[in-house]
Amino acid sequence: MYYAVTIALLVTMALALLRALLGPSVYDRVLAVNMIGTKTVLLLSVLSFLFGRPDFLDLALAYALINFIGVLAVLEFFRVRAEQDKSDANTESR
């Protein structure tokens, strides 16, 4: 049972990786990273039960807590980028 779930998760990760590689837009890649992050949390949880060591769930918890900081940083990055472009355009038009 756990094996089936693990295989399904690995296939999903491979598909998400494919999307991250192909793109084409930046948002596809951001979503793909986010997706792989979520799948990693699930994979770690399933594997810890598969190995019979549920105390290793700590790791999945750590991922679940931290994963989205990266996405927030991406959001902030684009906000800053957009502001820069705006100010650049302003100075050029003058």
Binding site: A20, R29, A32, I36
Partner: peptide, 10 residues
């Protein structure tokens, strides 16, 4: 950068 995030997860 995005891909290196994926690399780290894997």
């Amino acid at each position: 950068v995005m891909l290196s995030g994926i690399f780290s997860l894997l």
